[in-house]
Design a protein around this nucleic acid. Sequence first.
DNA 1: TCATTAACACGGG
DNA 2: CCCGTGTTAATGA
Length: 209
Amino acid sequence: MKSVIRENFGFLFEEALLQEIEAAGTYKKVAAADTLIEIGQYVKFMPLLLSGAIKVFRQDEQGDEYILYFLEKGDTCAMTLNCCLGQSKSQIKAIAEMETELLMVPVQKMEEWMTYRSWRSFVFESYNTRLTEMLEAIDSLAFMNLDGRILKYLKDKVLINKTSTLPLTHQEIAEELNTSRVVVSRVLKKMEQEKIIQLHRNKIEVLQY
DNA sequence: TCATTAACACGGG
DNA sequence: CCCGTGTTAATGA
């Protein structure tokens, strides 16, 4: 377990902090599609990702959802950090995109460790990247047409799954983007003709990204 | 104009 | 047969 922590965070934190993390953190492994937190739940732990990926998204009263960002190994959730500083209820929902290993650290530690320079940098850096990703999410909702949103969705998937052949159905894409399958099929067909992707049954091969 | 809904045909597993 | 896919027609924003 110790080696896994060092593999992912060793280059970021000094020895003393690494030892504190080892002592305070609980190792946890979740399966794909497992829910990590729901909106309104109290945040007691902050996750440090060791492997895999987590999808973080917002959800409204009707159950409609949109993706905010993905977390990968070496990342932590900025919304959790936010909860430690202010209110403690989660504003977001998080689901494991694939099998994921993480370290659960009690939220009190987050403030204690602010005495470590490397920890402060890590927290600010995390805020920074998450904020940038959220701006991208806003842009795609506000300014991009469906073609653009689908393309961004596919590119994001390629990056986090680390494969250009995505095991996706048109219906699944439609649900994630809050649109209908007819449109997804049409847009994907067009993208195939433009040689951007290659369509197969139950999977999509991304050629340009 | 472009998305949605419903409906249908095609075909691979 | 079931399900994912590709298309069309009607309707609406």
